[in-house]
């Protein structure tokens, strides 16, 4: 893993395609249109937080990127290469190699209950044969467990770990395949409040190392502090897409950002005061 940090810069360089391009993504569940032609570009090394009320389609959006949901329209381009096209089946090989570049961390961890923490991490690399022999795989898994601060719990089963620990194992399990992009689907929503911090810390470290992250979250402070951009979704459309600084500075000249401010619960800054004083 560490060798990759050097390769991925914090911002997209000229001539490099974005990590992920979503073009006119449409998704319907029966009559209900969940995603209404979503467009989004995510640069390499960028950290995007997706926020929004329940049912706004944010989880569905990242699930389509990971092919956990099929598309009704639009396309997903991964590092400049076609990855998913609505209603079309692309080259299997291409899709598989694309999938390998995207990792996902789930709201309720989804660790394999019949495997220890270590085995959970070793399972996918062994299946794909990505880490040579079993001993190397074990070493890598131990390294990753150490990285999320759980080396002492390597041989415990998921039910012997707390929620926060389980989620950290799940992050390590995702890292084991060396993904270029990691999707987080409300990674702290199922945790007790005192465990949220330890998981956010691990995510924050990944962000610092230049990993491309897409995080669906309700942790507003975290979203503002860690993200390069905060995207707010509402009723299946992107309502706002802005840098945290712009959101914090928003005033009446940027009405679309006032809604995101309101949703995030930001109040009583100078900017807000100045909006009130204006006629």
């Amino acid at each position: 893993m560490p060798e990759r940090q050097a390769v991925t810069g914090k911002k997209t360089e000229k001539g490099q395609p974005p990590a992920l391009q979503l073009m006119k993504i449409r998704k319907q569940f029966g009559e209900h249109e969940v995603l209404k032609k979503i467009d989004m570009n995510i640069g390499i090394g960028e950290v995007i937080s997706i926020i929004g009320p329940s049912g706004s389609g944010k989880t569905t959006l990242i699930r389509t990127v990971n092919r956990l949901e099929t598309l009704n329209g639009g396309e997903v381009v991964l590092f400049g290469e076609d990855f998913i096209k609505g209603g079309l089946s692309l080259n299997r090989q291409q899709v598989r190699s694309g999938m390998q570049r995207i990792g996902m961390v789930f709201q309720n961890f989804n660790l394999f209950p019949h495997k220890t923490a270590l085995e959970n991490i070793m399972l996918a690399p062994r299946y794909h044969g990505t880490t040579g022999n079993a001993e190397l795989n074990r070493q890598q898994a131990l390294f990753l467990l150490d990285r999320v601060g759980l080396l002492a719990h390597a041989n415990k089963y998921p039910h012997q770990l707390s929620g926060g620990q389980q989620q950290r194992v799940a992050i390590a399990r995702t890292l084991a395949l060396s993904p270029d992009i990691i999707l987080f689907d409300e990674p702290t929503s199922a945790l007790d409040p005192e465990m949220v911090g330890e998981v956010l810390k691990v995510i924050q470290e990944l962000a610092k190392e230049g990993m491309t992250l897409i995080i669906v979250t309700h942790e507003m402070d975290f979203a503002l502090s860690v993200s390069d951009r905060v995207v707010m979704m509402e009723h299946g459309v992107v309502q706002a897409d802005a840098r945290p600084q712009s959101i914090l500075k928003a005033d009446n000249s940027t009405p679309e950002l006032l809604r995101i401010r309101e949703f995030m619960g930001i109040e009583n800054t100078d900017a807000a005061d100045s909006t009130r004083s204006e006629p």
């Binding site: 956990l68 598989r96 990792g103 789930f106 660790l111 394999f112 995702t174």
Partner: peptide, 14 residues
């Protein structure tokens, strides 16, 4: 066996 288990496997490209 929970649906999430299969999804986790899918996310690991299995």
């Amino acid at each position: 066996v929970g649906k999430g288990q299969k999804e986790a496997g899918h996310a690991l490209n299995i």
